[in-house]
């Protein structure tokens, strides 16, 4: 913990930065009280997020209890390397988010914005890995191969070899759409339903979190600078949301990829 080394100044156009001119809502007594209220409100919202995902975790537990083999089987289709990589990506993004707040608190606008961008990139990377490496191959049988090593080979390819097709690999779809022919457990469709719903709901939250961070990034642009040592409520809120998304993944990852 350190003290705030804040030097007031004007930004371009001779205007005071947003965090300087910010006035709290009139029904609060002080800026701090507003900050506190927003934080408590956000934590209440995060509690609802936890309980939203509680449904997924209860689903997991109950059906794992009922069909242990289907779940063990299903889990073994997942590659822990992608799950692990995504965990690392999210953890790093959580760190950069926390650092972004730290920089705003010290009024290091440039570094703070850079950290926000890294967070956004990590979020996008997470979703990309999820889609290209997990969802699309499992659903359709089309593998993503950036090395394009299958171009010109036996396998069907698309986009100049960026994707290649593997017969019989796809079809691992949720519910009635399930069409994977080599399933060995009669309840394997239940596993895939859970997998897509759980990770899909989580991915949706990643996207929402990215939107919140992008909003913060936009309003912290030079010439506006809405966030700084005296006022960084918005960053803090987006950060809390981003961390809860990370938190849920911390549990989803071992449950889906590691427990067998």
């Amino acid at each position: 913990m350190s003290t705030i080394d804040f030097k007031p100044g004007l930004i371009q156009g001779g205007r005071a930065p947003g965090y300087e001119t910010y006035k709290h809502a009139s029904h609060f007594r002080t800026k701090d009280e507003e900050f506190d209220a927003c934080k408590t409100g956000m934590w209440l919202f995060l509690a609802t997020e936890v309980l939203l995902f509680a449904g997924i975790f209860v689903w997991y537990s109950i059906y794992r209890m009922m069909y242990p083999d289907a779940f063990r089987n299903g889990s073994s289709y997942l590659d822990w390397r992608w799950g692990g990589l995504n965990t690392v990506v999210l953890l790093i993004s959580s760190y950069t988010m926390a650092m972004s707040i730290n920089h705003f608190q010290h009024n290091r606008q440039k570094e703070a914005r850079r950290n926000l961008v890294i967070t956004l990139v990590c979020g996008a990377l997470f979703v990309a890995i999820k889609l290209l490496m997990e969802y699309i191959p499992k659903m359709t049988g089309w593998h993503f191969d950036p090395t394009m090593s299958h171009a010109g080979g036996e396998a069907l390819t698309k986009f100049g070899g960026l994707f290649y097709f593997e017969q019989g690999y796809g079809g691992k779809l949720p519910g009635i759409l399930f069409s994977y022919p080599f399933a060995t457990d009669p309840h394997e469709n239940m596993w895939w339903s859970l997998y897509y719903t759980g990770t899909g709901l989580h991915a949706a939250h990643v996207l929402i979190g990215m939107a919140l961070i992008a909003r913060v990034w936009w309003f912290s642009r030079p010439g506006v600078e809405n966030y700084g040592p005296k006022h960084y409520t918005g960053v803090e809120m987006a950060g809390l949301y981003w961390h809860i998304v990370d938190l849920i993944w911390i549990f989803l990852f071992p449950l889906l990829y590691l427990i067998h």
Binding site: T48, E49, V50, L51, L52, F53, A54, G55, I56, W59, Y63, P174, G175, I176, L177, N189, M190, S193, L194, T197, L201
Partner: peptide
Amino acid sequence: TPVIGITLLLLILERVFHIGI
């Protein structure tokens, strides 16, 4: 309330994709 949120969401998925839960 969030639990009814996920419940009804799953119910909608059940009707659309028949996820089977």
